[in-house]
Write a protein that binds this DNA or RNA. Structure first.
Lengths: 190, 190
DNA sequence: GGGAGCATGTAACGGGTTACATGATTGG
DNA sequence: CCAATCATGTAACCCGTTACATGCTCCC
């Protein structure tokens, strides 16, 4: 009988904690520093670019709740690092979270569209230049997502991670295409 | 000579304050309650769904800084409301913000893709059902954005607001299309 | 009479950031 | 030797949310 069926209460945590635990669920033991790097190369494309200090805070919380354990590895006579791994409870909770907890609302904060929306207060030429700059950034993100997706494809256990990155590649390509549409739309409106 | 050319320092505020001031920059005097409604029908699609309490806080701050002024309107013998309007300083600052302050990074927190990314911990059938539900929500958002865009097109001064809403319509349509792609991709991967 | 909408506000909380601080190792 | 990278942590801050509180008017 599953924990859900047994009616056990769900551990309540913000989605970002689950995101960090999710990184640990890919089986390898990781230091806080490692987690930050993984997050920047996957999570950041579709969810979150966590700050370094936040990661260490989350890891300590996960350990306090028994969802992760840590041990200290002596990398050098004078230097060590703390490695975190997921526990069985952590794995079970992670599964329950993905299955049972309805997805939080999608958050989009698009500072460029915000400026467009208020464009009657400003200079259209500058706005268009900024939009085209953003288009380049988006294309660059698409390329980076694509390259990380190819990397993830090599490991079987990273299948869904790879698909999420493929989704991200498409997201940023679509984002660039919408900017192109937008610039044309602005030209035709004036 | 412009304030920028005069080298005057830019008033520093979080983007959300400018968003609220932006609502006031469409010329009409608005109550906090009104601002909330406008925000839900435009800002919310591409930037922010502010909480009611936050709006009142922002309005008081904008007035304290001289970017907005308020007056009390007696709507009934026993009832009144406070109407806020933008000041010349507010208008000038708004323009400087749109022109001079580089756009903040775009924030995307996609809880559905987060769950997909960690899907090796859970039940694919449930995930797909949730994705299809989200697809419906996205299409509904697209329809709402479209309808608000048509509304905005009627007023000449809302041109950019209307274009931002057209962008939003496309964003949510693309979002739905990406979900369709994603579900096919998941089927083919298994 | 009662519920929906109008209208405003306070208090507690917490999530997450920036800035600061420290120090070791590695490679050019 | 110096810069980049590895590695971890604390403290201050604030943005924004939720929850709570209040009371009116309009309409069925």
């Amino acid at each position: 009988m599953s924990a859900e069926a047994r009616g056990e209460p769900m551990i309540e945590l913000p989605a970002t904690s689950w995101a960090v635990l999710g990184i640990l669920s890919f089986d390898t033991e990781l230091s806080g520093y490692d987690v930050k790097r993984w997050a920047d190369q996957s999570l950041a494309f579709f969810y979150w670019a966590p700050s370094q200090s936040q990661i260490y805070t989350e890891l300590r919380r996960l350990e306090r709740l028994g969802l992760a354990v840590s041990r200290v590895e002596q990398t050098h006579p004078t230097k060590s690092r703390r490695l975190y791994g997921i526990t069985p409870l952590g794995r079970e909770s992670m599964q329950r979270w993905t299955d049972e907890v309805p997805a939080e609302p999608v958050v989009l904060k698009h500072a460029h569209i915000l400026r467009l929306w208020a464009a009657h207060n400003g200079d259209l030429t500058r706005l268009k230049a900024a939009l085209l700059g953003y288009r380049e950034e988006a294309l660059e993100s698409a390329r980076r997502a694509s390259s990380h997706a190819r990397g993830a494809q090599r490991e079987e256990s990273w299948l869904f991670s790879a698909i999420a990155l493929e989704w991200s590649e498409r997201f940023y390509q679509d984002e660039a295409a919408r900017i192109e549409w937008l610039v044309r739309r602005l030209d035709e409106a004036l």
